[in-house]
Design a protein around this nucleic acid. Sequence first.
DNA 1: TTGAAAGCGCTAACAT
DNA 2: ATGTTAGCGCTTTCAA
Lengths: 384, 384
Amino acid sequence: MTKNPRSKPATMHDVARHAGVSVKTVSNVINDWPYVTPETRQKVWDAIQAVQYRPNLTARSLVTGKTHTVGVIVPDLSNPFFGSAIRGCEDELLESQYSLLLCNANEDAERERYYLNLLVSRAVDAVITWGSRLTQAELSLIVGDQIPLLTIDASEPPTAANHLNVDIDNIAGARLATQHLIEQGYRRIAHFAGPEGRVTAKHRLAGYRQALEMTGQPYDPALVASQTPTIQGGYVLAQAFMRQDRRPDAIFCYNDLMAIGVLLACRQFGWQVPGEVGLVGFDDLPMATLMDPPLTTVRIAQYPLGRLTGRLVLDAIKNASRPQQSVPYLVELQVRGSSGKGLLTENGRRAMVESLMASLGEDRLGQPAPAATVDPRQTPDSAG
Amino acid sequence: MTKNPRSKPATMHDVARHAGVSVKTVSNVINDWPYVTPETRQKVWDAIQAVQYRPNLTARSLVTGKTHTVGVIVPDLSNPFFGSAIRGCEDELLESQYSLLLCNANEDAERERYYLNLLVSRAVDAVITWGSRLTQAELSLIVGDQIPLLTIDASEPPTAANHLNVDIDNIAGARLATQHLIEQGYRRIAHFAGPEGRVTAKHRLAGYRQALEMTGQPYDPALVASQTPTIQGGYVLAQAFMRQDRRPDAIFCYNDLMAIGVLLACRQFGWQVPGEVGLVGFDDLPMATLMDPPLTTVRIAQYPLGRLTGRLVLDAIKNASRPQQSVPYLVELQVRGSSGKGLLTENGRRAMVESLMASLGEDRLGQPAPAATVDPRQTPDSAG
DNA sequence: TTGAAAGCGCTAACAT
DNA sequence: ATGTTAGCGCTTTCAA
């Protein structure tokens, strides 16, 4: 007879009783302890089936001190950047049977603090925080050095033991982007910067200035402004700048979202991109390729980066190796249509869409690529 | 003297000893038990500070049987739809101090099964699964009726007690979309359907057929094909259909991703949208508005839907009320540029961008709207 | 108002 | 190869 479905879930004791063995034996079977006779093993498995036993991981965690859980804090869940990144991380964690506790800090330091404390109280085995707004001192204070902490683009290099940082090469990326605009012949290049006080914003501005200096261009503070790193932010700044007498002829944006805002403003007011305004973003969001013109941008490969973060914390948890505290992550310029007058020929556009379709692979929008050809006649089972 | 930072975290016993009271008293203070003298309370709080105590939620869960955690399973984390939806859910859960355990089923029934079992083992207080591929029988078998289960667009109505389904009105949405195309004067309207066997795909096809019937149009199976619901899927089908002799003059797609794929193909081969091909999607992804032309689509308000799911499971957990097993969720047609020849005047386009900027609010891409005006002169702290 | 003790379901010494 | 038993850190009767 099976158990009454409304009763409490079965415990190891129930299994033990049912199988006529001790709890230790049940535990042994479940944890693949080698020294169990096949018969006993079978008996136990049968009992497990019979009483519908499922281990209570809370209890296990209490005694082992491990929750097999990683806490992940992101600044803005609705930013598609993190969808891909978290997916990569989750894939990596799954392989080691770890779960992911997701927290959306919502660009709010207070909320981040709250979550950090919560994750420690929940005894997660590691914490990952993206674009943290807290100082290393505060992070150390809250997290301590008992539990591995991985930051991505933290504002300072990690100080505490057991803390790691992934350093996205924002300076080089911004330099590349700006150089590219200069090479394309643009001369009044504005920079729409991210939130002041965020390091990534600081670094991307620095890269912009480096490129200017390296090519002997003057740096004009009037061509730089910061805003929230969103579509609206870019849109607002574009209007403000493009309506001036001496408008810029190109804009390097802090991120793709801002660049898209600029693109929208240009579309609305009829400013040609890339003819009148060259445009470069940062991140390479999945949607960057879909814009018209497709957005030139600095690619941070999100899915691989997500996998990397997963691998790093897993290593830290297993204490495998911690060679350096700061892990660099390279970026690369993706030249597409928005940044060069000669970039948008008919053929170029066609090649671009084709390569997009090819690249929309595992780590991009949507699922595995469908077959290249299809019979339009094939209809789904009809309904209604 | 503060505790050695390398030692184990402080427990309630440490606090009790430090404060010279019993563990019960500490527990009372932490859980706001009313009958504690202010002095004792203060003493305990001081001790908590002194030993840097943080409650161990694992232990608490073991005894209370509640983990204050909700498991959420989505089919594809890189689909921006879920970024917004999960954000809504998370916001709702946070208000009640619940955490979110995120699982990406990756469109794989096996992986979904694995996660479902895991979540039960982890004793989450509720489970939410989006677009489940499992039958109600299987869901009931794995989850049981002890823990609340909320499905969104499940393949069948829930059978078990304690199970709820949110029913997105796919049929009506598809009908609206198709009717709209008919009203715009299109006559050979194709439907690019979603994966066969998925109810949402079935329902959207049904809505398409309903609209045809209601307006006396013939239903032509040759105008329907199914594919993976991705950009590539849409791209592939568009090529197959548009190269036929008798091509469709409009396409209603299963979702926005497919519609974007169609748009890309049209862009590549020079088919005018909406002139030669009218196009309607489904979902209203954040990026739908950003396309050129902006995509007409059936809006499923993602952030509010996410909040709703959070509220529903919270209600179920707290046993507040469970009036019906099936909660309807309405959709609405968003007419934009891709579906009507008269829809893309200069003024219309301008109004569209403006309303987009206005609507890019709390529940959309990016953060709260920035100030409408800005002084471009304001520069961030210079660097490098 | 506070304390002592039992026990949540599991793992891990230590016996046998 | 299997059983006994003692906790993990907390909440919760039940006494005091």
